[in-house]
Write a protein that binds this DNA or RNA. Structure first.
Lengths: 149, 149
DNA sequence: TGGGAATGCTTAGCGGGGCTAACGAGTTAC
DNA sequence: GTAACTCGTTAGCCCCGCTAAGCATTCCCA
């Protein structure tokens, strides 16, 4: 029976470990919803993108989150119903829908994010500086991996 | 507008980056289902546990995956229907259900895992040795984070 | 300039997989 | 013997991926 350390020395072993770790951590993060807020992980991600990059189309949001358009349509519709986001027409292209953050959405995402990340930030504070440094380097790599073909 | 690097210097910023990265990578990994196999991420995780640790009860599986019992009941039922797993009685405690890997389940999980992790392993091979080393160190930290309260 | 191809979004519907609430069967403690 | 607890299940909710198919709109080209 190989130990975890030995298994992780191969790429396949590292792949398996990463898969399980990523899966479990996401599950844990999804759980961290405050009763008073009703933003899901996917909604958070979209509001975060709009906050950082200004208005975006449905298609751009879908590509950035690596999701199929129908999935993004649904998320945006939900956010629109909540009043956090507004749909608008494109200046020149009648097919395109432009999504913008409403003022209320801006407030909500900032407040919500700080609450939501509070749990994880606390856990991070319990790690050693070395471990935090590892995660700092790992985070962008994970994101890049998710964008690979 | 702060750059990503600056944001990640704080624990809250790192938390946000990790959240997004983990979310996206899990999505990407869940997508990597081969048409010929019908094992989902959750099913893989359970079969992997049984492969490594032998027979386990529903409750043990739920605790190990950090899932509520009803969720594990459903996953195990599905695996049982597929013939990859068998439910059995506990020796002394009539309440407990013991789950074991069938011979077929054993074969399937090994074949499936290698196919499933193939994509990720290829991506890992494209990274620099330094980046791979970072992920090797990060993987167990992610898993530990997922187990925190 | 008219018409087919391409593009952007939506609708409909499927499935995985989390959760809580409530309950029955079995066990334990008193 | 009975009350309290524990394990697993059922029922039902929600999130959030996906594909297939359809409707506008735009683009391109004969």
């Amino acid at each position: 029976m190989p130990t975890t350390e030995a298994v992780v020395r191969t790429n396949a072993g590292l792949a398996a470990e990463l898969r399980v770790g990523v899966m479990r951590l996401r599950r844990r993060l999804a759980l961290e919803r405050h009763p008073e807020n009703d933003l899901s992980l996917g909604q958070m991600a979209v509001l975060g993108l709009l906050l950082r990059r200004g208005e975006l189309t449905i298609g751009e949001l879908a590509r950035l989150e690596r999701v199929q358009p129908p999935s993004m349509t649904r998320t945006v519709s939900c956010l629109e119903q909540l009043g956090h986001v507004a749909r608008g027409p494109h200046e020149t292209d009648g097919r395109v829908v432009v999504v913008t953050l409403t003022e209320r959405g801006r407030e909500v995402v900032l407040a919500d994010r700080s609450r939501r990340d509070a749990w994880l930030a606390v856990q991070l504070a319990h790690l050693t500086p070395d471990e935090r440094a590892t995660l700092r380097r790992a985070a962008p790599i994970l994101d890049r991996l998710s964008q690979a073909d």
